[in-house]
Amino acid sequence: MIYYFDSKNPKAPAQMGRLLTDMVIQKILPHQEIVILCIGSDRSTGDSLGPIIGHQFRNFISPGIYLLGDLNQPVHAANLNYCIKSMQKTFDNPFIIAIDASLGKEDHIGMMTLGSGPLKPGLGVKKKLPEVGDLHITGIVNSSHDMESSTLQTTRLSIIFQIADAIVLALRTFNDDYYIQQEPELSYLLSQTS
């Protein structure tokens, strides 16, 4: 199931963040590390959503949550396969939340989606890339009426930042909620070692 949130609605980030927490708790295995994978390129306005989110969220991450993809080191079509292989070597079966820009219906521009299962990056511009993620978040940045990569080049930067700001707030809500719910377990483990 895919849930839609309007990035212009001030209540949407908190609602999305709480739902993300619930979905992660239902699916995550004990001791599984969380990787937030922000996909996109800093060289295309419409595809820059992921790196901008990674850049804005980098300083808010709690222990046990990791972030890949930002403006300095974007994860994009050319290095996504390598990044997935590196994650598999670095982490033992990580729980991946994949984030990317997407194209959609004209009246869905500015919407954020949250769904179960893998993200299918590049679908809107007819690129064949590996599916990735246990959960996925997308921001609908432009219309898919012609399904061309030029659509991403003509996307307004203001819509990218509007969606990015809302998703970062949702991730911060998730980050805080998830960490608070893990604290009793962490404090129990610390008391056992002292």
Rank of each mutant, 00 (worst) to 15 (best):
V35G: 04
A166H: 00
L68H: 04
Q73L: 14
Y4M: 13
Q26K: 15
S194W: 03
A101H: 01
F174Y: 05
S86Y: 11
S48E: 08
V168I: 10
Q182H: 08
F91I: 03
R18F: 02
P118G: 09
H145L: 13
H145Y: 09
F91M: 08
T151Q: 04
L114C: 04
G117N: 10
S7Q: 05
G54H: 05
S62Y: 11
L80W: 01
A164H: 06
L119G: 01
P121K: 00
G17N: 02
T173F: 01
I140K: 11
K120G: 04
L49Y: 11
A164C: 07
F161C: 03
P94F: 09
V141P: 05
A14D: 07
T154P: 02
G46W: 03
K89A: 14
Y179P: 02
K11G: 08
L189R: 15
I25C: 04
Y179V: 03
F60H: 15
L169W: 08
G124Q: 05
P13N: 01
F161K: 06
G69R: 00
M87H: 09
I25N: 05
G122P: 11
D134F: 05
K126L: 01
Q15L: 14
P63R: 09
I25F: 09
G133I: 02
D176T: 11
D134K: 06
T154A: 14
P121M: 00
N175F: 02
M16R: 05
K128L: 11
D146F: 15
Y4Q: 10
I97W: 00
M23L: 15
D92T: 13
G40H: 00
Q88G: 12
L129H: 00
S187H: 15
Q162T: 11
H76L: 07
Y178W: 12
M112N: 03
N142M: 13
D70T: 10
M87S: 02
D165M: 03
I97K: 02
P51T: 10
Y66I: 12
S191Q: 07
Q162D: 04
L119H: 10
L169H: 04
I99V: 15
K85A: 13
I34K: 03
I53F: 06
G46H: 07
D100W: 01
L186T: 12
G110P: 03
E148G: 02
M87I: 11
I167L: 13
I159A: 05
G64S: 10
A101K: 03
Y178F: 15
P74H: 03
F174N: 07
L152T: 00
P51Y: 11
S143I: 09
P30C: 10
S102Q: 00
F161W: 07
I39D: 02
T90E: 13
G46I: 04
S144V: 10
L186Q: 13
P10Y: 08
S86P: 03
K27P: 05
D22G: 12
D100Y: 01
S41A: 09
T45A: 12
I109V: 14
H76F: 11
L19G: 00
S149H: 06
S44Q: 08
P10M: 06
E106Q: 13
I140P: 06
Q56P: 06
Q192I: 12
K126M: 08
G54M: 07
V24L: 04
I36M: 10
H55P: 00
G133W: 00
S187N: 13
N72M: 10
S191L: 04
D107W: 09
P94D: 12
T90H: 08
P121T: 01
A14N: 07
Q56G: 03
L114I: 06
M87P: 08
T21A: 02
D6V: 08
Y178S: 09
